[in-house]
Simulated scan of single mutants.
Amino acid sequence: MTVDLSEADTTVSRGTEPQPRQLIVTLFGLYARGERNWLSVASVVRMMDHIGVDGPSVRSSISRLKRRNVLLSARHDGVAGYSLSQSVLDVVNEGDSRIFGRRRATLDDNFLVLVFSVPESERDKRHALRVTLTKLGFGTVAPGVWIAPAHTEREVREALGRRGLSGYVEMFDGRHIAFGDLRSKIRQWWDLDELSLLYSDFITTHRPVLRRAREGQLSDQAAFTEYVPMLTTWRRLPYLDPGLPIALLPHGWNGVVAEDLFADLNEALGGPAREHALKLIHQ
């Protein structure tokens, strides 16, 4: 069965809260991997309840994730639970470096240029390619010509191979050497205005949380309640912004502020949130 990886990703829309199924995937990514890639149904319900999602919504979301082959039923010691499917687990493992180990290109780095051609009889593959490249943060130079920082090459190779799309693609390592202002081109190839608004929303929403954490106002439970939705919102942003050189971005690019804020939030909340989660998992 083909995994619908869109269920494992977070779609970022301004002014909307993360969906329950997205929060559940975050919980499995954060805490199931240290528990033999397994969480009991009861522990997921408890954790989601502390985030403010009721039991029926949790069970409905789990059923949807199971139908999409994101979660697989598994029993441990007679207890009902779920594991991430191997395909989704691979995506989550690979995502750690982009989400937690942010890399940003410089002007001295090359670009990864990708060209694809898909027969009309396989339009579904063309759609899958476009969706995949968009999720990986590629900009669109022209129909069938996409571009991203060269440091994403390994990740792109693995993603296309995993989805059976590599046979439709040619990849090149290149530089912009002439004609046109590259800063202006970047604005054409990526929707920087929308990305900046998403970063602004993240900063506005979560900067007060960091202040409260640093002032010692958050219990472990409160840290957990804040951390999981925050990470769920954040984990798509590094894919929409694949680490373009700062020199090619608008002056005062707020993505840098957002990245620093996320790093500080992760340091301040991650540990206490895990302590609380483990209590709920082993309750």
Rank of each mutant, 00 (worst) to 15 (best):
P149C: 05
W38D: 05
P229N: 14
L182W: 08
H282R: 15
Q22Y: 04
L165Q: 14
I281N: 00
T11A: 11
D109F: 09
L84G: 00
P149V: 13
A258D: 07
L107N: 09
I203T: 13
H206F: 15
E120A: 09
F28L: 02
R212Y: 04
G216F: 10
D193G: 09
L231F: 13
L165G: 11
H251I: 07
L280F: 11
T140R: 15
E17F: 06
R183E: 10
G243N: 07
A74L: 06
Q221P: 01
G81D: 03
S43K: 07
T26S: 03
S13M: 11
S83I: 03
R162A: 14
R21C: 00
V25G: 00
L65Y: 00
Q188R: 14
S13N: 01
L248C: 03
H276E: 01
W189V: 10
S121D: 07
V91W: 13
A128N: 12
R126K: 14
L248E: 10
Q86M: 12
A222R: 15
P245R: 08
R123V: 08
G34F: 04
T205C: 08
S40R: 11
G174T: 15
D260Y: 05
I186Q: 06
H50E: 15
S200D: 08
D9Q: 05
A32Q: 08
P238K: 10
S73Y: 02
A277H: 14
Y227M: 08
V45C: 12
P143R: 15
D181K: 13
E215D: 11
V169T: 13
T132R: 13
H176W: 15
A105L: 10
R187G: 02
A223T: 12
A32W: 01
Q221E: 15
I147M: 14
L5P: 10
T232I: 06
V58I: 08
Y31E: 13
S87W: 02
V91I: 14
H251G: 12
H206K: 03
T152M: 01
L280D: 03
L165M: 09
E267Y: 07
S166M: 09
K279M: 12
H127G: 06
D9A: 09
L27P: 03
L192W: 05
